[in-house]
C-alpha cells in the first residue's frame, strides 16, 4: 500500500532548514519511494536476466540448455550465418526480414490503437464523473476472458466462412469471400484488439484531468475543432500518448500467440524466432543473444523517445 511507505512527516512549523538539506531530503524520499520497485524488479526481472546475458556467451548444449564453455557463436549468429550449402559467410537475411516485419507490424498496430483509442478515451473522459468508471470497466471486461479463447472467437468473425464474409456475400457486396484470415491484416487486427486497452487506459488517465477551460479559451480565439485538437488537446495529453505507445509498441514486438493463431504461423515474428531457439531449435545462446539485442535496441529507442517527448511536452506546458 502506498500509504505505508509515505516518509515520516516533516515538521511543518520547524525553522527553515537550508535549501541544500531540503533538496537532499527530497532526493532521499524519492529513493525510498522507488525502493520497493527497484528491489522487486532486480529480484524477479532484471536480476534473473543476467542469467540470459551469461547464456548468450556460452556454447549451445546438445539438447537445449548450455554447455559451460565460453563462446561467441550465439552473438555471431544474430547477424551472420554460414550458408549451410556452400559454406560462404553472409548476412543472416532471414533474421533481418523477421526483425523488419516485427517492427513494421508493431508500428502499424500502435498507430491503429492510437487512432481508435484516442477518440474512445476522449469519449470516456467526457462522460459524467459517475459514469466514467463504468465505461472504463466496459473496456477491460472483454480482456478478463482468456486470450486464446478471445482469439478463437475473433477467428469466427473473420474466417472465409465467418460472420463478416457471410454478411458481405449475403448483401451482394462481394461475390467471393474475402480472405482476411492468415494475412498481415488479420495479425494487425488481432494485435490491435489485444493491445487496445493498453492504449486507452493511459490515454484516459491523462485526459481525465483535461482542463476544458483551455479548450473554451481556444474556441474564443476562433480556433477550429481540428486546431483545438492539434494545438490544445493533443499537447496536453501527450504523457498519455507516450505511455500508451510504449505499452502497445514494445509488447507487440515480442508478440507470440496472436501472430501464431491469426497469422496462420507461416511467417515468424521476433517472439516466434526467439521461442524457436529456446524450443525446437535448441540454440539457447542464439535465443539469449537475440533477446539481449532486442532489449538493448528498445531501451535506447525508449530513452530517446521519452526524452524527446518530455521536451516537446514542456514546450507546450
Amino acid at each position: 500500500m502506498p500509504e505505508a511507505a509515505e516518509p515520516a512527516p516533516e515538521a511543518p512549523a520547524a525553522p527553515r532548514v537550508d535549501a541544500e538539506e531540503m533538496a537532499r531530503r527530497a532526493v532521499r524520499r524519492r529513493w525510498l519511494l522507488n525502493l520497493p520497485a527497484i528491489l522487486w524488479l532486480i529480484l524477479f526481472a532484471a536480476g534473473p536476466l543476467l542469467v540470459v546475458l551469461l547464456y548468450s556467451f556460452l556454447a549451445a548444449g546438445d539438447y537445449g540448455g548450455v554447455r559451460w564453455e565460453l563462446s561467441t557463436d550465439g552473438w555471431f549468429a544474430v547477424l551472420m550465418t554460414r550458408d549451410i550449402f556452400d559454406d560462404t559467410l553472409r548476412l543472416q537475411d532471414a533474421h533481418l526480414a523477421i526483425f523488419w516485419r516485427s517492427v513494421k507490424l508493431s508500428v502499424m498496430t500502435t498507430l491503429a490503437c492510437l487512432l481508435l483509442g484516442f477518440p474512445t478515451a476522449y469519449f470516456i473522459a467526457t462522460r459524467s464523473r459517475a459514469n466514467r468508471n463504468l465505461w472504463l470497466f466496459l473496456i477491460t471486461i472483454p480482456f478478463w476472458t482468456n486470450l486464446l479463447i478471445r482469439t478463437f472467437a475473433m477467428l469466427e468473425w473473420i474466417r472465409a466462412q465467418g460472420v463478416i464474409n457471410s454478411v458481405l456475400t449475403g448483401l451482394g457486396i462481394v461475390d467471393e469471400p474475402v480472405q482476411m484470415l492468415y494475412t498481415d491484416f488479420s495479425i494487425m487486427l488481432g494485435m490491435t484488439y489485444v493491445y487496445f486497452p493498453l492504449m486507452v487506459l493511459p490515454l484516459y488517465a491523462s485526459m481525465e484531468k483535461l482542463d476544458f477551460r483551455l479548450v473554451e479559451a481556444a474556441y474564443d480565439l476562433y480556433a477550429s475543432r481540428l486546431q483545438v485538437l492539434r494545438g490544445v488537446i493533443v499537447p496536453l495529453v501527450s504523457p498519455g500518448i507516450v505511455a500508451g505507445s510504449i505499452l502497445v509498441f514494445i509488447p507487440s514486438l515480442g508478440a507470440y500467440v496472436t501472430p501464431r493463431v491469426l497469422g496462420g504461423g507461416k511467417q515468424m515474428m521476433l517472439g516466434n524466432l526467439i521461442e524457436l531457439q529456446f524450443g525446437q531449435g535448441r540454440n539457447w545462446p542464439l535465443g539469449a543473444a537475440l533477446s539481449i539485442s532486442l532489449l538493448a535496441l528498445v531501451m535506447v529507442a525508449l530513452i530517446f523517445y521519452v526524452r524527446a517527448a518530455q521536451k516537446g511536452g514542456e514546450g507546450h506546458g
Binding site: 522507488n34 520497485a37 527497484i38 524488479l41 532486480i42 524477479f44 526481472a45 532484471a46 536480476g47 534473473p48 536476466l49 542469467v51 540470459v52 510504449i246 505499452l247 514494445i250 509488447p251 515480442g254 507470440y256 521476433l270 517472439g271 526467439i274 521461442e275 529456446f278 539457447w284 535465443g287 539469449a288 533477446s291 532486442l294 532489449l295 528498445v298 531501451m299 525508449l302 530513452i303 521519452v306
Partner: peptide
Amino acid sequence: LTAVYALINQPLMVPEIVTGVALLVV
C-alpha cells in the same frame, strides 16, 4: 532517474519466453 525508469520498464522489453527461462533457472 533514467536508470530507475529503464529498470521499471525493463519487463516490457524482453519477450516472455526469455523472462520465463531466466526465472526458471533462478
